[in-house]
């Protein structure tokens, strides 16, 4: 997800486990959608242990971002188009 690094993001959790990210999204975001690894978010395949929860608060997306050396970060990015695309996914 190299292109995510070029977007304006906020780090919500740093060095979190995939489980902590999922629990945070489900507890703190108004809505969320579960996706499988490999799902394309910001045009790149998402890495993680399924189900991967993507949080939605208006136009803001909250999602895990994994780096091999630094663990998993939970990031927050405002993007109306991507938020609308994720919101349109069927709730599971």
């Amino acid at each position: 997800m190299g292109c995510v690094e070029s977007l304006k993001y906020e780090v919500v959790l740093k060095g979190a486990s995939f489980k902590e990210c999922r629990e945070y999204v489900r507890a703190h975001c108004k809505e969320y959608r579960d996706v499988q690894p490999g799902f394309r978010l910001f045009e790149k395949a998402v890495v993680g242990v399924p189900p991967i929860s993507i949080g939605l608060d208006g136009d803001v997306l909250v999602f895990p971002y994994t780096k091999p050396c630094y663990g998993t970060f939970l990031l927050k990015i405002e993007d109306p188009e991507e938020a609308a695309r994720i919101r349109a996914l069927k709730k599971k």
């Binding site: 690894p37 890495v47 242990v49 994994t66 091999p68």
Partner: peptide, 15 residues
């Protein structure tokens, strides 16, 4: 050797 490795393994298995 860390949580990231588990995430990558799960991703490869799932895909």
């Amino acid at each position: 050797h860390n949580d990231s490795g588990v995430s990558y393994a799960a991703t490869v298995q799932s895909i």
